[in-house]
């Protein structure tokens, strides 16, 4: 337990105060997600993105109209403390790189980076050079492809080709599989669906499968606990079926069933 009393002189510069609080040494502008500021020293203004004088900045670094309502620009000079629901907070440097991150996990970024919407729903892409701050439920782990990860544990990925869905074949093999595929009834381990990464780069994972509540931004009808946070999981389904498996199961199940 820390009993240190901190003031602007002893607060770290662009670094973590503790695993849950990050201190930004603001001198200019940063983009923040709304409501993540917990305290600040100095003279700082917070403005919505539609604010006139910010037009140039926003035009240069913010390219996601879907998320514009959730972001603000902090400008001024001082020490700014960021935190998010007592989740672990980390900062990362990006050098002329690109990174995809789950939209709910990104807290703040420097205007040197450009924010874009990933073509994968629910994710954002940062391109350029600069620092950004992200939250995760439990510490972040860096892993290298080739790897398959649980959709709920995925925080983001950098410099790799985009992932694809991977379904284990087990769940539609054999008699039980046939029943499951045809009726949607039957046991499933809950782990037959993964994201597969190949090539070189880094994949960021959190050590929990708890997701931040996020806005449904351009996501295709996500439904149920299984489909939570899985882009494209909520394919059109029939009543009573298991979300996520019905589309593929129904297609292949039809072939299997007619055999």
């Amino acid at each position: 337990m820390t009993v240190d009393v901190l003031d602007p002189a002893t607060l770290p510069v662009d670094d973590n105060v503790n695993p849950y609080v990050f201190c930004v040494d603001l001198n200019g502008e940063w983009f923040l997600q709304k409501g993540k500021m917990i305290a600040y020293y100095g003279d700082i203004r917070f403005d919505g993105l539609g604010h006139g004088p910010l037009d140039g900045l926003v035009a240069a670094s913010f390219h996601s109209p879907l998320h514009a309502g959730h972001w603000v620009v902090a400008q001024g000079r001082g020490k700014l403390l960021l935190a998010d629901r007592a989740y672990d907070v980390n900062s990362f440097d990006l050098e002329d790189g690109n990174l995809n991150i789950r939209s709910g996990n990104l807290l703040a970024f420097q205007p040197g980076l450009a924010l874009k919407q990933s073509i994968i729903p629910g994710f954002l892409t940062l391109i350029g050079t600069g620092k950004f701050v992200a939250a995760s439920n439990g510490p972040v782990h860096f892993v290298e492809p080739p790897i398959r990860v649980d959709p709920q544990a995925l925080v983001g990925w950098a410099d790799t080709p985009s992932p694809c869905h991977h379904y284990d074949h087990h769940y539609l093999r054999g008699f039980l599989g046939g029943v499951r595929a045809l009726t949607g009834i039957g046991g499933a381990s809950g782990e037959e669906h993964q994201f597969e990464f190949t090539g070189s780069g880094t994949v960021l994972m959190q050590s929990s499968e708890a997701l931040m509540p996020e806005e449904a931004v351009g996501a295709v009808g996500v439904a149920g606990e299984q489909g939570r946070g899985v882009p494209g999981a909520g394919v059109p389904q029939q009543a009573g079926g298991q979300p996520g498996q019905e589309g593929l199961g129904g297609l292949l199940g039809g072939i299997l069933g007619g055999r």
Partner: peptide, 19 residues
């Protein structure tokens, strides 16, 4: 507190703003 509290000093000329 929800998560360990950060203790911040306030001194004359050093106002602190908190959410």
């Amino acid at each position: 507190s929800d998560g360990p509290a950060v203790i911040l000093r306030v001194a004359p000329g050093l106002p602190l703003t908190v959410d």
